[in-house]
Simulated assay, not measured.
Amino acid sequence: MTQGKSTLYGNIQNRVGATNSRLIIMLALMVVGLGILEGGKLFGPAGLRSMAFQLPELGFLALAMMIPMLSGGIDLSIIATANLCALVIAYMLTSWIPGTHGVVWGAIQAGALFVGLLLAALVGLLNGVLVAYLRVPPMLATLGTMTAVKGLAIGFSHGNVITGFPEPVVFIGNGSLLGVPIALIIFVIVVIPLSIFVNKTPLGSAIAMIGSNERATRYSGIDTRRSLVWVYLLSALLSGIAGVIMMARFNSANAAYGESYLLIAILAAVLGGVDPLGGFGKVSGVILSLVILQLMSTASILLDLSQFITLALWGAILILVSGSVVLKDWISARSKTSSKVAKT
């Protein structure tokens, strides 16, 4: 059993290492090419600052998508969860205004953030129970929760925008420390332990093993159901953090914010080397893919390209990347079958 695990981990390291190398080459080529076209604007202080403020919210959503995909699943409810979390926090911040702005007001702000993230965790727990214990396919389970959560968010807010938050909350999305955006600092603080969790902890290894072969993982003595609950709980918490950053950056919350981010989150995960079928992936690859996609997004704005053209380009990239992964696995399986037939 130990030898089998070592072989699996070796395959994962080889695969993600090759993916990261390709992403670094792609990023270098983009930097050179875009530097020639729009270098002064794109890589100037204003351009870099703009990308640094935009990257964290998409980054948290991409990581929220990565964890379920590692297990062979998917979470379509990440945007709805982020928006519901943001709306509940926004409602509390704009409705429960005390007479003084002292310690009580600070406690209310912290309490609002806690309640919002707790609500996000409950959505993730529901997804985990549906997938792990009721055996609902992840796509159907999270599609159902996405629809239900979005309906709750629209009904709760009546489809309106809630705005006007206190300065400490707005500072999360728009403030900076020594020139570095606070949101980016939060992102780095979360990414480091998350990377260690995915690659170095027993639960992180179990999640990847479930994505490779859930039945074999269960027979090896791992509680796959509990692991899957943790998968969707972590995904929802990361989505909730993304919702906090979005509401803070826009100084508003709405049930329809960030709907186009779902495609980009899936694209960032797949482009970063996360196997759509599960079992393979690394946080560093997702981070590299996020930088590439952020460069593409900012460059398309500077080049005055239509937003619809950019979305179409991202969709085409997603099809090509995911299709190439599936094709590679199919070719590998065929070659192994042919080799066995030749030996017999």
Rank of each mutant, 00 (worst) to 15 (best):
V180K: 03
W105G: 14
G102V: 10
P193D: 04
I210V: 11
V131Q: 00
M92A: 11
G106D: 04
I97C: 04
I186Q: 00
M146G: 11
A153F: 07
F171M: 09
G155H: 07
M139R: 09
F165T: 03
H101Q: 14
V191L: 10
L203Y: 14
L93Y: 02
L134S: 15
I192R: 07
V198M: 01
I172V: 14
G159L: 02
V136H: 03
I185C: 02
I154D: 03
W105E: 12
P166I: 02
G164R: 00
L177N: 09
G175E: 04
P168S: 01
V149A: 02
T100H: 08
P202Q: 04
G144I: 11
V103S: 12
S95N: 12
M209G: 10
T100A: 11
A110G: 10
M146Q: 09
A206W: 03
I182M: 06
V131N: 00
R135L: 08
I108P: 01
G128N: 05
N199D: 13
L177C: 08
H158K: 13
S205Y: 13
W96N: 07
K150R: 15
I172A: 10
A208C: 14
W105V: 13
M139C: 10
V136D: 04
G116A: 08
I108D: 01
F187L: 08
P138L: 01
G179W: 08
T163D: 03
